[in-house]
Design a protein around this nucleic acid. Sequence first.
DNA 1: AAAACATACGGAACACGGTTCCGTTTTACC
DNA 2: GGTAAAACGGAACCGTGTTCCGTATGTTTT
Lengths: 191, 191
Amino acid sequence: MTGTESGAPRKQRADSRRNETALLEAAAAAFVASGVNAPVRDIATRAGVGVGTIYRHFPTRADLIVAVYRHQVEACAEAGPVLLARSATPHAALASWIDLFVDFLVTKHGLAEAMRSDDAAFQTLHAYFLDRLVPVCAQLLDAAATAGEIIPDMDALVLMHGIGNLCIGADSPSYDARLMVGLVIAGLRLH
Amino acid sequence: MTGTESGAPRKQRADSRRNETALLEAAAAAFVASGVNAPVRDIATRAGVGVGTIYRHFPTRADLIVAVYRHQVEACAEAGPVLLARSATPHAALASWIDLFVDFLVTKHGLAEAMRSDDAAFQTLHAYFLDRLVPVCAQLLDAAATAGEIIPDMDALVLMHGIGNLCIGADSPSYDARLMVGLVIAGLRLH
DNA sequence: AAAACATACGGAACACGGTTCCGTTTTACC
DNA sequence: GGTAAAACGGAACCGTGTTCCGTATGTTTT
């Protein structure tokens, strides 16, 4: 008989919790060292666990990435309204916020690439980033449009997708992601 | 006639030439069906050859891609001066030319991704595209800058790199690469 | 404290794609 | 024809992601 009575579930085992935090730290270190595509085995070794343990805690790579960067994404999301309130104009707020977002992306080797992957395993990543950040971006766009500073009806999802793309390969010396993003922001302006 | 110059190399074997064209056709078909990252074995099977034969003719995947798309890249490169001569303004020529380039990229599933890969195997691809197209773009940019239509000193390499990036994932229904490229072009304008 | 049980672990094994290597076959030339 | 260079095929190898299951560990019960 399967005791399906939904009573008090056992609390998570101590070793499980330990391994989870060890994995998060190991993954963060590996991401810095080798980018977000660091081999699974590397991360497992760093954390001193077997590969199975990774998959048990983070079924897809995206889950791990989300877990590692959650705070930073949250910070970025929360910065939106703050910037809007404090900036001279909505357009300035938008530019500052996009700057934050770009900073975040370009400092995470390979994250921008991963963001746009259509691999099913990255669905979670995609979903999380977009769910969290697109509304913030939309708010900023809306404020700037209402103020007559930029073209109306710009789709926040498309814009973020495009900015993410522009940040791919940002560490190449012959490329300048910020310059390109700047052109996009300039292109949004009414003139 | 049969030049018997000393050291005259044997002419290429007939089977070799046959296989090369078979491979080009097979690769073109595979690229259409599965994108430019189609498995090597698939291409070999389509062409009815062994995998070794692919590597003998095209040491890297980039070599194969370049061979398959050479005509189209040439056509794009040659269109630059023509557009410049025929368009109302240099800026219009630039916009039209970039449109051509974007068309080329978005219709080749996975090509934009491959273009930006820093994998050593794609060095050839990178080099060929840039060698062939960047000067054309630079000429258009220069003409438009001289005419006072756009900001001066825009680096053609950075611009093409960025446009290539924007075309990544262009087949996603929730994205619009052309819209983003349009923003960039608008951003180039002096205002 | 020990038994009983659920939970979590480790890492071998598998899948898959790129790449190399070498014995065999085909072709060009004499 | 004969011979040697050129080219071929595909098995074998490597690096990664992913799965699976016998074992170990932690928790609860007696």
